[in-house]
Amino acid sequence: MRSSAATRPRRVLWHALALALLGLIMYPLVWVAGASFTPTNDVVGNTELLPSEPVLDNYARALEGMAGIPVWRFLGNSLLLAVLTVVGTVASSALAAYAFARLRFRGRNTMFVLMIGTLLMPFHAVIIPQYIIFQQLGLVDTYIPLLLGKFLATEAFFVFLMVQFMRQLPRELDQAARIDGCGYWGIFWHVIAPLSRPAFGTAAIFAFIWSWNDLFAPLIYLNTPERFPIPLALRMFADQTSTSDFGAMIAMSVIALIPVVLFFLAFQRLLVQGMATSGLKG
């Protein structure tokens, strides 16, 4: 008796708190969605969630793109970059991680420490040497500087993530596969890779989002406006020295958000699985 009487208010309180937290987290997102329908001159300093007179102008101007380049072009560029980044990052990081987690070779620990060390190196410290290299190679204003590193497992964070994941997989599975006649490649392909799917999924989601949001690297390496991804285009709507079109900027942000959300929804299953199982099921 006593316990059920006590749990009820507690449950109500729990839900109320959860809802309040949700409201807090959702507020900026709802504001952005609302502001994208607000006339552009009223956007700044506006605290109302939903506009009293919703307008579609912002979307019309955002869809026009800029300097004669349609917004689809920017979205397409971003998508191309993001998809290639995901493919490159997952494939190369998986191979590197497999080597670190399973193979024995000379200097493995040193190389592992060096790789972790690159995590500590800020992007700004390497940008100028990297720029000089790509400039001398004549590769500036192509996508190669943005993608080459992704295919060479330079994202130490993902390599580390996968190494940790693969280390948990029981070695007995490798040995069983070896008895069945698998070589190193076979073990990776038939045993490690399928079991590491949750880790790959996590890496894919993060790689996609980071690539999608990356402003600095495309800013430095790309010159031709037709090759710009969406974050560069977004910046053009708010130039502090001329008039800013905040409405169109926010509308374009909403458009830019859609692919990320879709990608997340598609792969979220893997992310959750990765967290829930974190290893093997019987």
Binding site: L114, M121, T154
Partner: peptide, 13 residues
């Protein structure tokens, strides 16, 4: 949390 790509590996560079 590191969000950017790290340096190219030494040999590649």
């Amino acid at each position: 949390m590191v969000k950017r790509m790290g340096g190219a590996t030494t040999s590649a560079a």
